[in-house]
Computed example of a mutant assay.
Amino acid sequence: GVNSLHGGLVGFGNHIWSQVGPLIHNSHEVGVTLQLVSPNGDSSGAVGSPGCPSGCTGYPAQITVDVTFTLNNAGQYQIHYKAVNDSSTLATVLNLTNHSYFNLAGENSAAGSAYGQYVQINANNYSPTDSTQIPLPGLPNGVPVAGTPFDFRSPHTIGSRISEVSAPDNTPASDASLTGGKSQLLIAQGYDHNWILNAQIPQTTGPDGLNLAAKAWDPGSGRALAVWTDQPGVQFYSGNFLTGTLVGISGNTYRQGAGYTFETQHFPDSPNEPSFPTTTLNPNATFASTTVFAFSS
């Protein structure tokens, strides 16, 4: 469509990455580093793509991206991102994240089981969106979650308020023309928004000195997940557009209520919102970030 969701026509998640360096394998963790070199113009788009008739996505500057995935004996799945702008003259924009779906009830669990799992998000504010799910302009701090179904400061099950499309969502009335007068839950068909993480304090500091983004747990299995990050936001997505086209390892099809994501990242549409934390990667600059998904039971 009109937005560069997930990196555009052929995002990084649809490229073949190469292993660099040896496999990580020691007494406390295993892992691997994968690398992608994205050329100036990112010439992986189809010929005739909007704004690029000869075939490219259009992102300037060559960047070299290394992503290291590790799993340790403490049940912590760590993702470390490193991206180097190889150009000495061109700036670019970059907002890396991970879109793994989680369902703590387990693979092949009952349909809709994710809706019965509890989620807690370390955020007093979230970013409401327009009708195309782009954050509304002029809201650098979003709007308060208080008094809305978006308030996960204390744990709630995903499904307990996901249908409250008539509940207040604190979207400014002046933005009705951008939202089409629809509620945020109706626009996204559930949760699919950026939560602006609270400033880090000692009580929310975890592995590698990272800030707490979110927690989730399943009362049936007893499995729990804590998400720790150095990023300013987390996109919590409740799988609203899962339509049965994704098939799991045991042949099951996934629909709404089958899983959810915690995408730690900068805020969506940051290149067009100067008041948001910047996603500009300057010439010869390096971006580095770490997120930890910590599992327990």
Results as ranks from 00 to 15, higher is better:
E164G: 05
S250V: 09
G248P: 03
A176Q: 11
K215T: 15
S238F: 12
R153I: 14
S160H: 07
I249Q: 10
N240Q: 02
G233K: 07
S163F: 01
K182P: 03
A214I: 12
S160Q: 06
A176I: 13
S166E: 01
A167E: 00
F241Y: 11
Y191F: 15
G239T: 02
V234Q: 04
G251N: 00
I249H: 11
A173N: 13
A173D: 11
V247H: 06
S250Y: 11
Y237A: 00
Q231G: 06
F241S: 07
T204E: 01
P172L: 14
W228R: 06
G239P: 03
I201P: 04
Q200M: 06
G159L: 05
D218M: 09
Q203I: 05
W217D: 08
T179W: 04
Y191V: 03
L178G: 10
G220I: 07
A167K: 08
P202T: 00
R223M: 13
G180C: 08
G222R: 10
Q203P: 01
G180S: 05
A213D: 12
H193C: 06
T157S: 10
H156K: 08
F241D: 06
N252T: 14
F241E: 01
W195N: 00
S166W: 02
W228H: 13
A188M: 05
T229G: 09
D151R: 07
L186S: 14
N194F: 11
I249F: 11
G209H: 01
P155D: 10
D175K: 14
T205K: 03
